[in-house]
């Protein structure tokens, strides 16, 4: 066989980029293999810069607008159904399982798309304080979130790892290891959606090479780890996180209102009521 293989790139700041190191690594799927970027420390630094910019553009969109952007993503996915199906089959899923995974993924997006303009009504409330004050608690997105995604060869898992943070308005650096091919494929649909550049950055690599840099980076406000990690790594992450009180979440929920809790910050505003 002598077919020309596609080389995937990282998707950062709305652009496809090679690792500045020029390095790649090989992902062996059950029925095929691919070369994907081996993200370097500098790539992470660049991604944070891009994510910060993306954050300011994404979080300021109205919730209604966010809903539409996310919904459009589901349309893109449906449109590329067969491509994903093939990829998942290459990864070892049966055709039926692959199809089921894509349907679930679409449903996941639909759920989160519809959540973007509702969650604030479920998490915020007026507080019945004593005295002549209007007092309300509402939520804001945390900022730049690094997600270490599950290794499942599953489009749905991938989306369940990126969407909770994204839906509330965070910018996400979505980091992938063994599921990188699917993730980087998804980047193409992200690129064609209306998501502002930098709001969702998709990268591939070996987390163990970057654990220090990511957990030490002060402008990454939170890390969500959606896979099992060993105690040694957990310790490194949390110890480094403590330098800037970075929020660390190990295997947080992926569906339901509770999936959003890690990525929101409660702001309470008081004002007197008088003449």
């Amino acid at each position: 066989m002598n077919e020309i293989k596609k080389t995937y790139k990282n998707y950062v700041g709305g652009k496809y980029v090679r690792s500045e190191s020029g390095k790649t690594f090989r992902i062996d799927l059950k029925n095929d293999f691919y070369e994907v970027p081996l993200t370097s420390r500098k790539d992470i630094r660049d991604a944070v810069v891009a994510a910060k910019k993306g954050y300011s553009n994404w979080q300021k969109l109205s919730p209604y607008n966010k809903t539409q952007v996310l919904y459009r993503l589901s349309e893109m996915l449906e449109g590329n159904f067969e491509t994903y199906q093939q990829l998942l089959q290459d990864a070892g899923l049966t055709k039926a399982k692959a199809s089921e995974d894509i349907h679930k993924a679409v449903d996941t997006i639909i759920w989160y798309a519809g959540m973007a303009d509702k969650w604030e009504q479920m998490t915020g409330n007026l507080n019945p304080v004593a005295g002549d004050f209007f007092n309300i608690s509402h939520q804001e997105s945390l900022g730049v979130v690094f997600t270490l995604n599950s290794n499942n060869q599953s489009l749905n898992s991938l989306l369940l790892n990126m969407l909770p943070a994204l839906t509330v308005g965070c910018a996400v650096i979505s980091f992938n290891e063994e599921n990188s091919v699917i993730a980087l494929k998804l980047a193409e649909d992200i690129n064609n959606s209306d998501l502002p550049g930098g709001a969702l950055n998709i990268m591939s690599g070996k987390f163990e090479l970057l654990i220090e840099d990511v957990s030490n980076h002060v402008e990454i406000t939170a890390m969500a780890i959606y896979k099992e990690i060993n105690n040694h790594d957990k310790k490194i992450i949390k110890e480094n996180a403590s330098k800037s009180l970075k929020r660390i979440f190990i295997n947080p929920p992926t569906m339901g209102l509770e999936a959003l809790f890690p990525f929101i910050e409660t702001k309470t505003v008081w004002h007197p009521k008088g003449r």
Partner: peptide, 29 residues
């Protein structure tokens, strides 16, 4: 960027009103 904002008042507290910080002022309410 702050967990509690007092507009035209300050240092008001109430059991029903969440209190806690952004950034290095901590986490949780």
């Amino acid at each position: 960027q702050a967990g509690v904002i007092w507009a035209n008042t300050f240092n008001k507290f109430d059991p029903s009103s969440p209190f806690g910080g952004y950034k290095e002022s901590g986490f949780g309410r």
